[in-house]
Write a protein that binds this DNA or RNA. Structure first.
Lengths: 233, 233
DNA sequence: CGCTAATCTAGAACAAGTTTCAGACTTGAT
DNA sequence: ATCAAGTCTGAAACTTGTTCTAGATTAGCG
């Protein structure tokens, strides 16, 4: 990634809500439908609309040609926003794509919630859920490529956002397990499942593993859950 | 990554051994101790030396500042090679870094071989081996960053090289297990272990997981081996 | 309404990966 | 030793992520 910005010392690019990086105004939640998102300064309606247009353009371009097709100038143009503004909303291409992923994850969580998996054991249910998600990704492989590549390429500067994605994924898996109060061992298993899910996706996206192979890997790792105690219904 | 080369149609960049586009690009390890690497056209001594200088410069720069510090112009200059030549040897920055990783992996495999892990079960031995590798990476975190980021960012065009790295990793793990003839179930477990290893590294490198957490994840996934049958000594 | 600070726009400028090209140098075969 | 083919060099050009600037616009406030 070019233009790394040698100057590490004096960075404080303003976000659309502007203001002190610390915290400002109380309670203000941003998007009406927003959940536990980081409480950022409230955006005006026009700003909210801009943000949405940008995310939409990003997903659209990504669906076409994956990571490389999401070009900042094009995103800006498609979303009718100046390049500088785009960067004010999303301080880098990776930030943008990770935000895009958060967006898609919310959709997916909603969708998955409607039809809970039907397996008898927790392991089965998690595997089924992940395979369902995997099939959804297969429908938009380029979009998947863009999002996953961004996620794994993200460096420390995107940690909070990536972490958020990770937490959301954890929630989805725990949902599938049907546990209210997971043990530490179970949380460890979930972490490993996430690692596998992630990495298996990458091997698939880069053409080094087949869909069948990904399925096997997911099923294999889900057996770990069985090691953590009885999880039958 | 800029300059994506819109032209997908007419690509056939020559490799130093320059020959048919068929079996080219394959990482020519023509070194004496080389193993079953892809057989590519033999390089002259000067070419072998150039290749080595490049790889060395790459590792050196990577050790300094990680992925971003490996700048193609600098690599070229450090290794006393023209930019165009650098690109003839390694068709992209990612190719270069993946090759660098192959190089380092060979070292590591050699090192690990000398002191086989001492655990009683296969799971313990694998975990110990991976932790040893992890400690080695901790000594050069920037280098690790560069290599791992390149690996996960690699797209289809680098598949063969990445696959090679993956195979090498598999060999190391199987070595640690001490198995001559792994069962399919065991191979699946190894795949999942690799996924976890990879992804855990990323979370560590991007500051989202502590060293302790990585250790736990590795130990957790290694229990999978216990599911595949008796592996005691 | 009129003001001020924040935000947005258009566009230039810069950085680093990648490509291209003309000319010099090597190599291998004759 | 000589010639052709293949390589290497140096330098410029091109692409795309990122930054910067000066001048509109907008939002909130008295």
């Amino acid at each position: 990634m070019p233009a790394e910005a040698k100057a590490d010392s004096k960075n404080a690019r303003p976000a659309p809500g502007g203001g002190t990086p610390a915290a400002s105004s109380g309670t203000a939640h941003t998007r009406p439908h927003s959940m536990s998102h980081t409480a950022s300064p409230p955006l005006t309606e026009r700003q909210e609309a801009r943000r949405r247009r940008i995310l939409h353009a990003s997903a659209q371009l990504a669906s076409r040609g994956g990571f490389d097709a999401v070009q900042m100038r094009e995103v800006a143009e498609s979303s009718q926003v100046a390049l500088g503004t785009l960067y004010r909303y999303f301080p880098s291409k990776v930030h943008l794509l990770v935000a895009t992923m958060q967006d898609q994850l919310e959709h997916m969580h909603g969708t998955l919630r409607k039809k809970p998996p039907a397996g008898d054991t927790a392991a089965e249910r998690v595997a089924e859920t992940l395979m369902r998600a995997f099939r959804a990704l297969q429908r938009e492989p380029h979009l998947a490529d863009a999002m996953v590549r961004a996620l794994t390429f993200a460096d420390r500067s995107v940690s909070p956002e990536v972490d958020q994605v990770s937490r959301q994924t954890t929630v989805i898996i725990l949902d599938a397990m049907g546990l209210d109060d997971p043990t530490p061992a179970q949380l460890s298993a979930v972490r490993v499942i996430e690692h596998t899910w992630h990495s298996a996706l990458i091997t698939w996206l880069s053409g080094r593993a087949s869909i069948a192979q990904v399925k096997i890997d997911i099923e294999t790792v889900c057996r770990l859950i069985d090691l953590t105690g009885p999880n039958d219904r």
